[in-house]
């Protein structure tokens, strides 16, 4: 099955089995390994990416559903060699430790910064993303720092 999709602004043609997970296509076929697999069953949020403006768990998306879509992964956030403000905030505030949850966290947070009305607070915005290392407080601080920057800009 031939499928075309756009990842971080680049067009790709792939021919995977139709039920192959978007996560695997990203990581194995297209070498966008920034997106991580945590649980592989939709519980941890490590594999979060944005698909046509919607937050998705790429481990739960068969590639056939991604045909013709635009996918943004963690690699698509930094622009012109400069880190996204969220990435910078995570770096400065200690929001990342081992890094497995971080791509998903940042993508979910980036989505929240774009759509602040969709969640009551940062806690709700990141409710589907789990972290085993940081104890969350520093992740919240990072997002808060980035969002205050955001409103000024």
């Amino acid at each position: 099955m031939q499928i075309s999709l756009t990842v971080n602004g680049k067009n790709y043609q792939v021919t995977p089995p139709p039920m192959k997970r978007l996560l695997d296509v990203l990581r194995e076929d297209l070498a966008w390994t920034g997106t991580k697999e945590g649980c592989g069953e939709g519980e941890c949020g490590a594999c979060t990416a944005i698909m046509d403006g919607v937050l998705v768990l790429t481990c739960m998306v068969p590639i056939c559903q991604a045909a013709g879509k635009h996918v943004t992964t963690i690699e698509g956030l930094a622009a012109d060699g400069k880190l996204h403000r969220l990435q910078q905030a995570f770096l400065e505030k200690g929001g990342a430790q081992c890094g497995i949850c971080t791509p998903g966290m940042i993508i979910a947070a980036a989505y929240y910064l774009e759509h602040p009305d969709e969640a009551e607070d940062i806690g709700e915005a990141l409710a589907g993303n789990q972290c085993r290392c940081t104890g969350y407080t520093r992740i919240f601080e990072s997002v808060k720092a980035a969002s205050s920057l955001y409103s000024i800009v």
Partner: peptide, 10 residues
């Protein structure tokens, strides 16, 4: 069951 996100103020 996976142990789960803590909200601010833990």
């Amino acid at each position: 069951r996976i142990p789960v996100p803590i909200r601010p103020k833990v």
